[in-house]
Design a protein around this nucleic acid. Structure first.
Lengths: 347, 347
DNA sequence: TGGTGGGATTGAAATGTTTCAAGCGTCGTG
DNA sequence: CACGACGCTTGAAACATTTCAATCCCACCA
């Protein structure tokens, strides 16, 4: 490691390295950035000096000179939901391939935190921003676009269209979930999810209703149980409301707007002594790892989480580097993953 | 928002603002950093110019001048485990209070990724690093210490002691878990966890064995089912091995080294038709939210996750700012949270 | 009227890196 | 021997910000 410690408070700079190696500071820079142009002897001398001094490049100075950072950022909506972690991993692999760092931020669903993060990222001069926004129409997002900073919405569609976005077809997701339940013989189904200010929730419900109608089912037999958030707790409380319904109105299956709700609902059902899927079948959405890991493995509508992230990163990089970039709304097709929670056919 | 777009490729700088407001660049800097010394009229003029131009401070230049960044970093071990996310949240609240940003990195248990992250963070000149290391004795960690960069180990104890650390008493955690099972009448118990290269696993097992011996139980009746990792999958496979034991050797309860293992084991048990807790009681460790959310809510040994994070951040900040800082090994006391998975007393 | 105090503003220096035109030697060729 | 070419190294400029000593200007006072 470092043999010499110039701990005079200040970290060693190229200048120090240059002095130690007896060369000019331009040469040190060449060793770092264009090793081919410097002679072997000099290079080795400089490299030894760097090792001895424990030299570490100062990224701010590089960045200042370069005018831009070597980083992307992802602002996620809910760090507590593993879904977003998986998306982040997809982004990170793509960022790594492009030799960029990734700053991961978490807005925790709070708009002011989101704005704060964005502000910081702007100050850092990140090359591009990926975001799953609290509110796709928030003014601070429009700001980004106006600034010309490459950014893409992840898991949300833009209505304005001044940027790229990456998401799955949520209407279709709703359709396949409910079609699966109809297939399994269910004739009274609950849709659990809310608030409807969230675009996804609306679209998944819309898909559910569409396919319900297409199969000629009575509108009233698709019951919407609204929730205040997409959390396990809310899923549990939806379970209570569901159990409170008069038995002739009580659904035999529930389609939840995401897996956290589904897990909460599952827990309530088990606690209440209901058998899943016999008394109540459950379908979730996202297919997070915990869905497969549940005591009764959850049927879920799978989103290609990592793929979503990778594509988003690809798009933001294209926008950042390609002058002919055109905005793109990448849509993925969700797929049903059938597991035990909808395992049997009702007669 | 910004009325004027100087999109000549370059973001507006203090110099541009100064020109637009008809003042010197020193004055602009004063408006930003010491608003009190500049007259109201000038200040307003400058502020308007900033708004018009859409001026955003360049953090790299600030940082270059200041010599240090305004950020902390947390390198977590496994982003897929919600435990670490909760720790990160604790850190973030503390960082926010100190008006610092937090860079969250994920080593995913891979040492080379960890090293890469650390290298980047060094280049960024972060004020301090919090880390749950893959290997507490890795040379790149010793490097950090030697560089004098404030860092603290989170959820791990250092043996070397050249730095702070924050963790719970894992031996005690193992004790209370197993004591709880003994209380509930269990006389044959499995410890599920591994690899034993992980300090935590060793210590939790050690605590388990200690209390087992103190209660005068035969050593052979505490059965170690080793796993290759602390994951749901490994928990499932441990379940299979457990089911394969001859019935007179088969434990009536399992203490898992973390909640992911416990969830996997629970899933296997339910799938295999075992009743939890009657046929098999289960205790986890960490008390992540998904433990409480399981179909059979999991009894778990709670770590104060956010508190762990907050304390770690406090310590690293102290090391960064207080010249009289002395390294501290903060220890928290784990607590048993009893839920349904150990709910009944065996006779 | 000259001087003083002080509030407001200024200009230059400094931070660490990269880039690039220019310089320096040395070697080979004519 | 002169010249050009080539390989390597150099030094200065530029990036955006902050700080601080110096300056300016005005009002007030003697």
């Amino acid at each position: 490691m470092l043999t010499q410690q110039p701990r005079n408070g200040r970290a060693p700079s190229v200048k120090d390295v240059a002095a130690a190696a007896g060369v000019s500071l331009g040469t040190v820079s060449n060793v770092l950035n264009r090793p081919a142009v410097v002679s072997t002897a000099t290079r080795e001398r400089v490299e030894r000096a760097m090792a001895d001094l424990g030299f570490v490049r100062n990224e701010s100075a590089r960045q200042l000179r370069a005018g831009t950072s070597r980083a992307l950022a992802y602002v996620m909506l809910d760090g507590g939901n593993p879904f977003f972690h998986d998306v982040a991993e997809g982004i990170e692999t793509a960022a790594e391939d492009a030799d960029l760092s990734l700053f991961v931020c978490n807005s925790s669903g709070r708009s002011e935190r989101e704005a704060k993060h964005l502000d910081r990222l702007l100050q850092q001069r990140v090359q591009g921003i990926l975001i799953t926004p609290v509110d796709p129409d928030a003014p601070h997002l429009a700001d980004l676009a106006q600034r010309g900073l490459p950014f893409v919405m992840v898991d949300r569609f833009s209505r304005a269209g001044g940027h790229c976005s990456v998401a799955v077809d949520d209407v279709l997701g709703g359709r396949i979930a409910v079609e699966h339940l109809i297939d399994r013989g269910h004739r009274r189904v609950a849709f659990v999810g809310g608030p409807s200010s969230i675009g996804q929730v609306r679209e998944r419900l819309q898909g559910a209703r569409a396919v319900w109608a297409e199969f000629g089912m009575p509108e009233d037999d698709l019951i919407h149980l609204p929730t205040e958030a997409l959390t396990v707790n809310e899923g549990r409380s939806a379970g209570e409301r569901l159990a409170g319904l008069p038995s002739r109105r009580r659904p035999t299956a529930a389609f939840c707007a995401n897996d956290l709700l589904a897990l909460g609902l599952l827990q309530h059902a088990v606690t209440a002594g209901l058998r899943v899927p016999d008394d109540l079948a459950i379908v979730g959405f996202d297919d997070i790892d915990f869905a497969a890991a549940a005591a009764v493995p959850l049927t879920s509508v799978r989103q290609p989480r990592q793929e979503l992230g990778r594509t988003a990163a690809r798009l933001v990089l294209d926008e950042a580097t390609n002058p002919d970039h055109v905005h793109e709304q990448a849509t993925f097709v969700p797929a049903l993953v059938a597991r035990a929670s909808t395992g049997t056919v009702r007669r």
